[in-house]
Design a protein around this nucleic acid. Structure first.
Lengths: 397, 397
DNA sequence: AGACTTATGTCGATAATCGTCATAACGTTA
DNA sequence: TAACGTTATGACGATTATCGACATAAGTCT
């Protein structure tokens, strides 16, 4: 019957579960030693997690002379989460398993400036559609991660004075979504979300990482001390409007002069090249030009890299990261952008801070947004407290 | 009211104790409701903490119609910790209670370049002396916090390639100290330590704070997300060698050009004023000159403030702090330095990041170092795990 | 003084955890 | 193939930890 196993002391089921988040299989004996609890107690706890589906037997262990130990591992397919990435003029919705593997995704052209009601209605309809396509009900969806192109107060899920998101300011995104899904809703800045995605895929063990996105705008997501840093108002990492030396008195749409974004963003570079007579209309034209080894384009990209590097060298002094990842559409232009970044950062940084610093191109690329959005959701779902709550509820009924 | 907060289940004595770290008195009923445990269980836990001396009855509560509840609060005098602050040419050793209140301190002129053996031997002798003066034995000292003027790998307590600390590179400070004291030894950069001190005294509830020290050198301590950020190599916050626009090709002792420290540090300002013919030999001459309203000195300090502000404006974009504290000997020069900082930071920062930003002078001043060093020690002592360990050991005997 | 209210400590009841033991599952050896 | 050694597992009684109720203490109010 419903034995009430309240984990009052020591490791609760949820905290025990954290051990499995590395994705590796573990034996009961191993867990018992790690936690200091008796094997029989561990068994009880694991039974709870197994009955929830979160843990499942994995490949059998080879014998060490006696009965082989059963291996248990995280069951990535126990539930699904959703990851949604809104850009300025596009949107992607996706479902992923608990391992962060994208199951399905769908992209559309959609203006963020259409406002929250329109955008979120699209998202909700699309998620319901994707769930149905996977043969799942709404209850299988435990959390929804959303990336938005502007500052977000993550604790409440409300956008904060976003410059390009008309109608979104202060809109209670989780409340709106929860009218349709009871899943937990996590909202964050899109660049923060991309930082999470990059870390999840390529640098799971790095605790100090800066992700820089260079595209129409320039922004960064900062992971320091293993945690995403959001700052007091949720604007941490907003480096697009830092003044750079080559900025001079170039005016920026923010109202100031000489901002990084005013000289090194895709529109800024295009504007400059057009003034030089090159027939470049958009970012993909720009990328093409660098692929065709058009000298002016390459030089412009490289200079943008130097400008970005100037700001990043300050970041290196401040944050002392182990890895800087360069992403965004501009980074598709081969190694030219990164070469410029490296040139300046390594010239300007103190030896101790730069000797173990890697400056690399994004490995996940365009998928970083939705992967990160899913990671945002997964981190909530697999949190010890969330798991403890699930265990409790499953005992209650 | 009747909501049982089970997420706090598994509340060990150490974790229960965390509630008392606010220094406020609490009643058993309050704790029981907060933790979801029965009052009788709470009583058992509290008995353990009381027998350790960590908790003690405080002022009686006024009755609300029935028997008044007994109030319990953190007993700040249960143990002592030590805080030691090494500067380039001076050193301070102190003892404090668990509330961070300095009990005694002693200062001396001492060159850090004398090396770790000489400096630490002085420290050990002085601490033994101070303890004896308080009528305490070595066992009453639970932890020692040490601030050093250079980068430190906090996890190991070893200085990392410090520029001005000859002989300290890689020296195992905790191991040396533990030859004499069994107390836990925590080592960190002196500016990080000052940030902790400032926060403890003046901004206990602020989770995003930057402390800037402007003196012989320029450095900063960054508290973000409630935690001191140390970076991958322990050099986070090292902003003295960020290039500033007014730096031009002024050479810096680090080997680079145009560093903030090369134009806005005390020696840099003095050098400039001397070149203008003013009779200024050291920092206190400089401060005096500003007190006597010497225009050249005030202008130089204000310009230093602008230079520092230039770097801090980038920090604001990156970290999005709620408070920036300006400390160090240069900040003693009235409001001139801060005025320069404010001028640039508020001009350069985005509205959302600056509307709730305070830029203020250090309130603790010279004592910040030792207070912070003690806080470093206290944070370890009052940590849930440390307390749990103490409880366990007291049960064992 | 007596009724009422609220906090506290005690103690039996109950639930959670532990430790032991019989058993299961494997390899090895006779 | 059977017997034996080895190691993991589940079950169950023993042990602890926690809970909940109750009697009592210490106040206020009438």
């Amino acid at each position: 019957m419903a034995e009430i196993n309240r984990s009052n002391f020591g490791l609760s089921s949820g905290r025990l579960f954290q051990i499995f988040r590395d994705g590796q299989p573990h034996t009961k004996a191993e867990l018992a030693e790690l936690s200091g609890l008796a094997r029989s107690t561990i068994s009880l706890r694991l039974d709870q997690l197994i009955s929830l589906g979160l843990i499942a037997p994995s490949a059998e262990n080879s014998s060490t002379g006696g009965r082989p130990s059963a291996q248990l591992a995280l069951n990535e397919n126990a539930f699904v989460v959703a990851g949604v990435d809104f850009g300025a003029s596009h949107a992607v919705a996706s479902l992923a398993n608990l391992g962060g593997k994208i199951l399905v995704s769908i992209e559309t052209k959609r203006q963020i400036s259409d406002g929250p009601e329109v955008c979120l209605r699209w998202m909700i309809a699309e998620l319901k559609h994707l769930l149905a396509g996977q043969g799942l009900s709404d209850d299988n969806l435990l959390a929804i991660g959303i990336g938005l192109p502007g500052p977000v107060e993550h604790s409440t899920g409300k956008p904060a004075s976003p410059p390009i998101m008309m109608g979104w300011d202060g809109f209670d995104v989780p409340a709106r979504v929860n009218q349709e899904f009871k899943a937990k809703v996590l909202v964050d800045n899109d660049v923060n979300v991309m930082a999470l995605g990059e870390r999840h895929v390529a640098y799971p063990d790095v605790d100090h990482l800066i992700f820089l996105k260079a595209a129409t705008g320039i922004g960064s997501g900062i992971i320091s001390g293993g945690q995403l840093q959001r700052g007091a108002q949720g604007t941490a990492g907003d480096i697009g409007h830092v003044r750079v030396s080559s900025g001079g008195d170039v005016s920026c749409h923010c109202g100031n002069f000489g901002c990084l974004e005013a000289v090194a963003s895709a529109p800024a570079i295009i504007k400059k090249l057009v003034a030089e007579g090159l027939p470049i209309r958009n970012t993909s034209d720009l990328i093409d030009a660098t692929r065709r080894a058009k000298v002016e384009a390459i030089q412009a990209i490289r200079q943008a890299g130097r400008d970005i590097g100037e700001v990043l060298s300050t970041c290196v002094s401040l944050i002392n990261p182990a890895v800087i990842v360069i992403g965004g559409s501009l980074s598709s232009a081969g190694e030219h952008l990164i070469a410029g970044v490296r040139e300046v950062v390594y010239a300007r940084s103190m030896p101790l801070a730069s000797e173990n610093l890697s400056i690399v191109a994004s490995r996940v690329g365009r998928e970083g947004g939705i992967i990160g959005a899913n990671v945002l959701a997964i981190e909530h779902v697999l949190d010890a407290e969330t798991i403890d709550l699930m265990v409790e509820q499953s005992i209650a009924r």
